[in-house]
Design a protein around this nucleic acid. Structure first.
Length: 478
RNA sequence: CGGGGUGUGGCCCAGUUGGUCUAAGGCGUCUGGUUUGGGACCAGAAGAUCGAGAGUUCAAAUCUCUCCACCCCGACCA
């Protein structure tokens, strides 16, 4: 019998957005709340985020950044201080006008990001060059009232980390931008997701930034997901919020600032990169349950024997793996197989009287839906290798897919009929990007470092025919 | 904000030329029994002010008006 005869998940090829929604629902990751655009993250979905978060937080803290927490409310006037910044965020702000039973004289914005909330305080904390660098990070919720919400990828409220740092010099600040970008890339690789990292175009950069770098991910429908951004803000915000220090030279200087953010949209990326027609596929690193044991029995005697055997295996690996026995009575093994496959559990151990009698286990791996039988004595070693193999296999599959779906084009007439991204030589002129967006709903995604250093493959821009500056990647995006 | 669509038990949805709707079916839930190596079966049960309000009518899930909410496609989106 074929897997999933009773299908509750739409096939990817049939309708990818519906498939995505089906997986989010069926794997019990999240659901929509009664507030438009705001999600309820269910325990299984939240755990995935927390595993990702723990990994990234470790990288950040190990690098010497300290965690901090600022209020959710920002005086609206603070937000309005930086012109580009407020223009970028004004349409999507949620504003508190009443509190304590009264209309507020000074309206409060719910932070869409915390530059404006933090930098006035930074100005107080920073007096001398000896106070630098100041490197703080917060894990917080932010609110952006986007027109079109999407589960995980663009909810009105979302969880993320935002780092806000101040350096004495531009060089130090720019070096950190790249370092953080590396952390983001590594965190995606922890999730077995390949990324394309580099610089954003002028029109795609962060409102108020001098330069934005990004990690871009390709979903299985060929669209791009911006997986995290690291911005060099220059002294733009420092000048507005008076973030300055007395240098060794006895003069005042504005601080060079960075901000960088990574959100739970990474969970959305995870689903869209690894998921298949049977649901979620999780790499072991971020699987809330890495191994599920499904006991199989017909009668009470077998049940006792099988459960005891299963418990022994579980206690052997407890602490080493996130492991669970599905002891639910009344559900058939087939039901349980499917249940955990939809949820993407990477490894399943099927244990019945056969296995118990022969001191073996049947192992199912979700990354390629295959089964094998392994002797109990070899299990520990086997699992160790298997986990690595599953991670590697998911990563390679994703990388192969991405590579196959990046097409080189020389003129924009070649865009149609393409799924995925394309690479082209571009003039970097904002007007051409606007044209591209209007005609094909595509924009530049990223300028890779190797392309930044090299001359463009084609001297002419694929849109305007003017002089091309670099080869860029373009795509539709979430 | 433009275009389209949908609101009926927890979920999916039938019914929408007004009457036979005391609202059908499937999934799920509960009870009992038989089952259990790839989404079990039988029997029974509970669960719905048909998105809200007003109106037309002998009679409204069904027609009219107003409102609300959500979804999809755009625009928007560090």
């Amino acid at each position: 019998m074929a897997l999933n005869e009773k299908r509750t998940i739409t096939k990817q090829a049939l309708d990818f957005p519906v498939w995505y929604q089906d997986v989010v629902r069926e794997a019990e990751l999240a659901e929509n709340s009664e507030v438009r655009g705001c999600g309820i993250i269910r325990p299984y979905g939240l755990k995935i985020w927390e595993l990702i978060k723990a990994e990234l937080n470790k990288k950040i803290e190990d690098d010497g950044v300290e965690n901090v927490y600022f209020p959710i409310f920002v005086p609206l006037e603070n937000l309005e201080a930086e012109k580009d910044h407020v223009e970028g965020f004004a349409p999507e702000l949620a504003i508190v006008t009443h509190a304590g039973g009264e209309e507020l004289t000074n309206k409060l914005a719910i932070r869409p990001t915390s530059e404006a909330a933090m930098y006035k305080t930074y100005a107080r904390w920073i007096q001398s060059y000896k106070d630098l660098p100041l490197r703080l990070n917060q894990w917080a919720n932010v609110v952006r009232w986007e027109k079109r919400p999407r589960a995980f990828l663009r909810w009105s409220e979302f969880l993320w980390q935002e780092g806000h740092t101040v350096f004495a010099t531009e060089d130090e600040a720019r070096a950190e931008v790249d370092k953080i970008l590396g952390f983001y890339k590594d965190t995606y690789e922890f999730m077995a997701i390949p990324t394309f990292c580099g610089q954003k175009s002028e029109s795609e950069k962060f409102a108020g930034a001098v330069m934005t770098k990004t990690v871009e991910v390709m979903a299985r429908d060929g669209k791009a997901i911006q997986g995290g951004t690291s911005h060099y803000l220059g002294t733009n915000f420092a000048e507005v919020f008076d973030v300055k220090y007395l240098g060794a030279d006895g003069e005042f200087h504005f601080g060079h600032q960075n901000s960088w953010g990574f959100a739970w949209r990474s969970v959305g990326a995870l689903i869209m990169v690894h998921g298949d027609d049977n649901g979620l596929r999780l790499p072991p690193n971020v699987a809330p349950i890495q191994i599920v044991i499904v006991p199989i029995y017909k009668d009470e005697a077998a049940r006792e024997q099988v459960l005891e055997y299963s418990e022994n295996i579980k206690s052997t690996f407890k602490g080493k793996y996130r492991i669970k026995i599905d002891i639910r009575d009344g559900q058939t093994p087939g039901f349980k197989f499917n249940y955990w496959e939809v949820r993407g559990v990477p490894v399943r151990l099927e244990i019945g009287p056969k296995e118990a009698n022969e001191q073996k286990v049947t192992i199912f791996r979700r990354d390629n839906d295959s089964k094998e039988v392994v002797a109990l004595v070899d299990l520990e070693k086997h699992l160790e290798e298997l986990m690595k193999e599953i991670h590697q296999n998911l990563y390679s599959q994703a990388l192969d897919f991405a590579k196959k779906n990046i097409h080189r084009i020389e003129s924009w007439d070649e865009i149609k009929d393409q799924t995925g991204w394309f690479e082209a030589s571009w003039s970097e002129d904002a007007a051409t990007e606007k044209l591209l967006k209007e005609k094909y709903s595509m924009v530049s995604r990223v300028l890779l470092p190797e392309n930044e250093k090299a001359a463009p493959k084609n001297k002419k821009c694929f849109i305007s025919g003017e002089t091309a500056k670099h080869d860029w990647l373009f795509a539709k995006s979430y």
